[in-house]
C-alpha cells in the first residue's frame, strides 16, 4: 500500500518521464484501475501543465543596455587554465613526494630489521636521529628563508604570467 507521499512521488516521476519502464507500466496500470490514483494523476497533471505555462518575468527595457555599458569598461579575464602551469603543479607535487620518500627512506634505514622482538616499532622510531640534519637554529632559519623566497618567486611568476596574458588579450 502506498502512502500519500509515495503516491505523489511515483506520479511525478511518471509525469516527468524519469520513471523506469517497469515503474511506468505499474503506475499506468494503477491510474487505470484505481479511482484515487486517477484523480491524483489528473490533479498533478494540471499543476504540471500550469507550471509549464507560467510566464517568465521581464526586466526593465534598459536592462540589456545597462549590461553592455558595464562590460564595455571591462576586459575578459584569461582562462584559469591558461595561467596555471601544469608543470609547476606537477613540480610541486614531485617535490613533496620526493621529500616524503626521503624521510621514509631515512627512517627505514635507521631501523634494525631483526626479529629479536626486544624493541617495539615506536621505540625504533624514537631512535631516528633528526638532529643530524636540523641540529641548530641557523639551519632552521636558513631553510625558512628558502621556503619564503620560493613562495615569493612563485607568486611573482604567476603575476607576470597573468599580466602577459592580459596584454595578449
Amino acid at each position: 500500500m502506498y502512502t500519500h507521499e509515495q503516491m505523489e512521488e511515483r506520479l511525478w516521476e511518471f509525469i516527468d518521464g524519469t520513471a523506469s519502464s517497469g515503474d511506468r507500466q505499474l503506475t499506468e496500470s494503477l491510474i487505470q484501475s484505481q479511482a484515487e490514483w486517477k484523480e491524483k494523476y489528473t490533479d498533478l497533471l494540471e499543476i504540471n501543465r500550469l507550471l509549464h505555462a507560467s510566464e517568465l518575468e521581464a526586466p526593465s527595457l534598459r536592462f540589456s543596455k545597462n549590461v553592455m555599458e558595464e562590460i564595455s569598461r571591462m576586459q575578459i579575464a584569461p582562462a584559469t587554465k591558461s595561467y596555471i602551469n601544469n608543470k609547476i603543479i606537477w613540480g610541486i607535487g614531485l617535490f613533496f613526494i620526493t621529500l616524503l620518500v626521503a624521510i621514509l627512506g631515512y627512517g627505514f634505514s635507521q631501523m634494525e630489521w631483526t626479529t629479536s622482538g626486544k624493541s617495539s616499532f615506536t621505540e625504533q622510531l624514537s631512535k631516528i636521529d633528526t638532529s643530524r640534519f636540523f641540529n641548530n637554529d641557523l639551519i632552521n632559519v636558513f631553510m625558512m628563508i628558502n621556503v619564503l623566497l620560493g613562495l615569493v618567486l612563485l607568486d611573482n611568476y604567476f603575476s607576470n604570467k597573468r599580466k602577459q596574458f592580459r596584454k595578449e588579450a
Binding site: 549590461v67 558595464e70 575578459i76 584569461p78
Partner: peptide, 12 residues
C-alpha cells in the same frame, strides 16, 4: 546585471 557582468568577465 551582476550575473551577466560576471559571466562576461569569466567567459574564457
Amino acid at each position: 546585471q551582476d550575473v551577466f557582468i560576471k559571466a562576461y568577465k569569466y567567459l574564457a
